[in-house]
């Protein structure tokens, strides 16, 4: 029915070819010029050769070999994967109980709306500032240290809070947690309450109902949340710069260096391609999981 009416509406528009070409043409041209072409160019550049003081067109795999054999780059790639996974897990552990509370436990609709808004609202506050906040809080001369000294818990400023992987995970979780809450909340909201009631009527305790009914049905939302949080923290380069410290470089920082001071665009391009491939694989993996979750769950 909807397919039929879609063809009908489409034909109505197709009669006027000019308008149709206009509607379809603008986005296609934009994508061709500002996405396909640039991506194509970095693919090509990633095979070029760096030759002091610049680089020359070539076709060789040297840049990729460097990335996967030079321990310096391997370490950065592994570190970035680790941070992104830790951030996703931390966000999940905070977001799931919160979304669960809102959907199933919170009795007042007004309170639910307020709390949901309160978690999403920080997205509208500058992302740079949300990273900067943690630099001022966790720093050696920062708020947390001076507070702890003032209260008498420690005697002198400690540097354990800032410029390490802990501070990066805290900061990135703080920044990206709304992206975990939104899809999980949406998924939980879609679960019909009578399913949970039915499992309770059939004698399942609250834990078993949760484990066998609620959790499996919410998995598509969890997958979407993990994808967003992972990809966003995977490509971040502001938080590492502000709170990561000297050993806190992530892939994006290295790419920035290659395009800046190191002036090795071919290597930077190759690293971007690696990042692009990892992100694309995560996205298509989660697409597949979401589809499976939907058909397997119902």
């Amino acid at each position: 029915m909807s397919a039929l009416s879609r063809t009908l509406a489409g034909r109505g528009l197709a009669k006027h070819n000019l308008a149709g070409a206009f509607v379809v043409g603008i986005p296609i041209l934009w994508i061709a010029f500002f996405m396909l072409l640039p991506y194509g160019i970095i693919v090509v550049t990633s095979f070029w050769l760096k030759k002091y003081p610049s680089f020359i067109p070539d076709f060789q795999f040297g840049n990729y070999i460097t990335l996967f054999t030079d321990p310096q780059y391997v370490l950065v790639i592994l570190r970035t994967l680790k941070i992104a996974i830790l951030v996703s897990i931390a966000s999940f552990l905070l977001a799931y109980p919160f979304a669960y509370y809102l959907v199933f436990r919170c009795k007042s609709a007004a309170l639910r709306a307020w709390l949901y808004m309160a978690v999403i609202a920080p997205l509208w506050v500058s992302y740079l500032l949300r990273a900067y906040i943690w630099k001022t809080i966790l720093g050696t001369e920062g708020v947390l240290n001076s507070l702890l000294i003032n209260v008498g818990i420690i005697d002198e400023p400690s540097s354990i809070f800032l410029y390490n992987q802990f501070s990066m995970v805290v900061t990135l979780t703080y920044i990206f947690i709304p992206f975990m809450v939104m899809p999980i909340y949406t998924a939980l909201e879609k679960i019909p309450t009578n399913l949970v009631e039915a499992s309770a009527d059939l004698g399942m305790g609250p834990w078993r109902s949760f484990w066998h009914v609620t959790l499996p049905l919410s998995l598509p939302g969890v997958a979407a949340g993990f994808t967003l949080t992972f990809c966003l923290s995977f490509g971040d380069f502001i938080a590492p710069f502000l709170v990561g410290g000297p050993d806190g470089n992530l892939i994006a920082n290295v790419i920035a260096t290659q395009f800046g001071a190191a002036l090795n665009w071919p290597l930077g391009s190759a690293l971007s391609i690696v990042m692009l491939v990892i992100v694309l694989s995560i996205v298509s993996l989660s697409d597949r999981m979401e589809r499976k979750g939907l058909t397997g769950g119902l």
Binding site: I31, I42, F237
Partner: peptide, 30 residues
């Protein structure tokens, strides 16, 4: 509209949501 390559079209348009901004930045810079 239905047209060949529509799913690629859709994926490309939605890509920058998950794609780190840095990739968009350096590819356009290039």
């Amino acid at each position: 509209f239905a047209f060949p390559g529509k799913s690629i079209f859709r994926r490309l348009i939605l890509l920058p949501i998950t794609l780190p901004g840095i990739v968009t930045g350096i590819s356009m810079l290039n």
